[in-house]
Design a protein around this nucleic acid. Structure first.
Lengths: 342, 342
DNA sequence: CTGAAAGCGCTTACAG
DNA sequence: CTGAAAGCGCTTACAG
């Protein structure tokens, strides 16, 4: 059966195409009798509206784009679950752009925004080249944007956002290490272009400072948000003359690499080295030893971001809703942190 | 600056809108002089074609849908990377539907297919409720479909597919266990609706049979493709009166849960229990002990699937390309398999 | 090589 | 409550 358009339905039901359209979109504007007749014709023809035509006509795609560092990170996968389920509930499909893997020129980003391919954008990586590109491109054509997982940086202060307090959470993780007796504490951060892990570094530094603990050169290294990067970073940390007795990793993905590398070096966790992560991804608790970490309500963040975005889309920007929504984090104590050996 | 349409550009360049369209889509049909003039006008106005209108007019969305069991599984994430990069190269965006999390009624699936929201479909989970729904719905409106990661089951024999030989690979994994001296070998499969893990079970059974080794009741359990499911399954296996000395897990995600649970029971891997996985996800090598597993070229599968799909889209179905493309797998020997204790 | 015109399938004021 | 008609922004035969 070839594609059937609204015309065939109208003919079969002996009504105008306008009436068919109304039956579908505003059934209350049509008498029940007509509605039934049209309904029947729809079934008989197997009609389904051409969404392409609808999108075009309405000027909406019902598509939202989410920009994130890496869909491979289980934390972001968890956020995506929240996003997808909320989006589905709201009638949206979602398009994903990964800043780590997708390369897009400024022109392409611009074209994408201006060509109305999506109704709105969720930014989970504001400082990435892609993210900043989106933001600057969007200063012209203002598409609704909501930031998630990160606090919104100053120049974008007019964007709504949903996230935990990364600085506080990192301070809490570091303080926990300190409370266990650690004084030499290293850190593996993500990458410079990640606001999220930069905030965690800030929290770590604040906690160390508050405890009047020094941070030696070489104790803070870049783990590139990956297992491989973290393994490399860990090796460097272990080679420090006065090496730390504990390592704070800016996310669990890196903590997993760190854990492995520490053990590969013949050290015991937590006896010789304590490791603490961030995110509480599903692998954290099956690590050996199970990973102590900070958990955040990933799916909830995703859902809330979508609801904020939908509100922006429906009400138009400038609805004055530019607030940060802080959701709670939690320290999850397992077995990868102990007291220092010395 | 508000949205600018092709009309403004035409006016500014003093040409017709047809010419502007040609400059963009068929520049060779236009004199260089005109082209330059139009080019200038495009820049001056900041024009970018309205993709909604283009899609509508052309009857193509440049969107492909991929149906997979779970984007959370790092193996599928790796496949998705291949899919995304190839899709991007071909000018497509990709929409993801997860069979584990998204619930769609038959009507919704049908509506989606018939309403031309996507140009083609990649099925990585043919036997899931969703997958079968897509297939039966598509018997009417025939959208291009390509199967990936799984062999295409008989009633769909007219679909192209790209995958490893799951049966052989599982046979190889099991044979390796046998070659190490194991005779009591258990298996944790995924779920009944997963063709992929069912084929792996077939391979396991074939290898056991070929070696004239019995499979006791209770040695084959369902791990539900998840860490939690595998932990539960492992507990059951460990409680068997004549429990296995080795366990073959149908994927690494489950092997990770299995490994954890075996160790939690106070057993040593591989001294007391050997564990072998499947997929070689990036966490496999940082497990403790590093996981012996079967690796498959995930990204490559993704890329090839996209190329096959694009060919179908461009040439129309019935281009006679319905072949299975088998890509190679490889046994990766690490430390989670040893000789049995007894 | 270029332009005038038709038309893709809808939705939505506007009349009646 | 219903229909005739305009129009969304493009692309593409069809003339010239």
């Amino acid at each position: 059966m070839p594609d059937v358009s609204i015309k065939e339905v109208a003919k079969l039901a002996s009504v105008s195409i306008a009436t068919v359209s109304r039956c579908i979109n505003n059934p209350e504007k049509v008498t029940q009798k007509t509605r039934l007749k049209v309904q029947e014709a729809i079934v008989a023809t197997g009609y389904s509206p051409n969404t392409l035509a609808q999108s075009f006509r309405r000027g909406r795609t019902n598509l939202i784009m989410v920009v994130l560092p890496s869909i491979g990170d289980p934390f972001f996968t968890a956020v995506m679950h929240g996003i997808r389920s909320a989006a589905k509930a709201k009638g949206y499909s979602v398009l994903i752009e990964e800043t780590q893997h997708d390369t897009m020129t400024a022109d392409e980003v611009n074209a994408m925004l201006v060509s109305r391919q999506t109704d709105g954008i969720i930014l989970l990586a504001t400082m990435s080249p892609f993210g900043t590109e989106v933001l600057s491109a969007n200063s012209r054509r203002r598409l609704p944007i909501v930031v998630g997982c990160e606090k919104v940086s100053s120049e974008l202060a007019d964007l709504p956002s949903v996230h935990i307090d990364n600085v506080s959470a990192a301070r809490e993780a570091t303080s926990y290490l300190i409370s266990q007796g650690h004084e030499r504490i290293g850190m593996i951060y993500g990458q410079v272009s990640s606001l999220l892990t930069r905030d965690r570094e800030l929290g770590y530094r604040a906690a160390m400072k508050a405890a009047k603990l020094p941070i030696n050169t070489g104790w803070v290294t870049e783990g590139k948000l990956s297992i491989a990067g973290a393994r490399q970073a860990t090796r460097e940390l272990l080679n420090q003359p006065d090496r730390p007795t504990a390592i704070f990793c800016a996310n669990d993905e890196m903590a997993i690499g760190c854990l492995h590398e520490v053990k590969a070096a013949g050290l015991s966790v937590p006896d010789d080295m304590s490791v603490i992560g961030f995110d509480d991804i599903r692998y954290a608790e099956v690590m050996d030893p199970p990973l102590t970490t900070i958990s955040q309500p990933a799916a909830e963040i995703g859902e809330r971001v979508v609801y904020r975005l939908c509100r922006r889309i429906d009400e138009g920007r400038g609805n004055g809703d530019n607030e940060s929504e802080i959701v709670p984090h939690k320290l999850v104590i397992r077995d990868s942190v102990g007291e220092p050996a010395d």
